[in-house]
């Protein structure tokens, strides 16, 4: 700890704890939230599409879509 005399001085941020930690905590929360949402969306998409596919396995029309690749 070269910059701080003690941990309490660190958490106090020179009297600016709310401003500094309010910034960092909300940012961290948003990043965790985004990661959770993105990974959950993937799982949900796979499950939903699998269900759709098993319900109507022949209604895919895959060949046509594969041809117009771009």
């Amino acid at each position: 700890m070269m910059e701080w005399e003690s941990w309490s001085a660190f958490w106090d941020m020179g009297g600016n704890a709310w401003f500094v930690w309010g910034s960092y905590s909300i940012t961290a929360m948003l990043i965790v939230l985004e990661l959770v949402l993105v990974l959950r969306r993937r799982k949900e998409t796979v499950l939903r599409l699998l269900r759709l596919r098993r319900a109507a396995p022949y209604a895919t029309g895959g060949q046509r879509m594969n041809e117009e690749m771009f």
Partner: peptide
């Protein structure tokens, strides 16, 4: 996956 769900490879 969503957009290409009708293709064979996504299947």
């Amino acid at each position: 996956l969503e957009r290409e769900r009708h293709t064979d490879w996504v299947g």
